[in-house]
């Protein structure tokens, strides 16, 4: 937040990009290790989601400059995808119902 976007667009110290770049490398290596070390079950899913959201957050916030944009743009772009959570919930409940029916009547 301390770097003000100056008169010509988004200009920030180049060092911050290197730091985020490095972090993304580390996080990618971590998510690959989740598979390589063969974590299973809840631990695996939690780790995958944590690393995924951290990477996505860093890309959107710094590389796509979202933390330096006005909140009006930030909300307009980042709020609508929350609807997808509703879709995921609906489809997940429908899918488990279908799966149950298949197991009961078509096996």
């Amino acid at each position: 937040m301390e770097h003000q976007a100056n008169t010509e667009g988004q200009q920030h110290p180049i060092g911050i990009y290197f730091k985020i770049w490095g972090l993304l490398f580390v996080l990618s290596a971590c998510s690959y290790l989740v598979d390589y070390l063969e974590f299973q079950g809840a631990v695996r899913w939690t780790l995958i989601l944590v690393f995924m959201f951290l990477k996505a957050g860093l890309i959107v916030a710094v590389f796509m400059h979202m933390i330096w944009e006005r909140i009006a743009l930030l909300t307009a772009i980042l709020m609508p995808p929350l609807c997808i959570l509703v879709l995921i919930t609906l489809m997940a409940s429908e899918a488990s119902y279908t799966n149950l029916n298949r197991l009961m009547f078509f096996q």
Partner: peptide, 26 residues
């Protein structure tokens, strides 16, 4: 940004569809 938002929905639909077929498969 608006285009990318719409693209987000397209990819989300693909991934949710993938979730559905993977969950329903016996």
């Amino acid at each position: 940004w608006i285009f990318l938002l719409s693209d987000t929905f397209i990819f989300s639909c693909f991934l949710v569809g993938y979730m559905s077929v993977r969950m329903t498969s016996t």
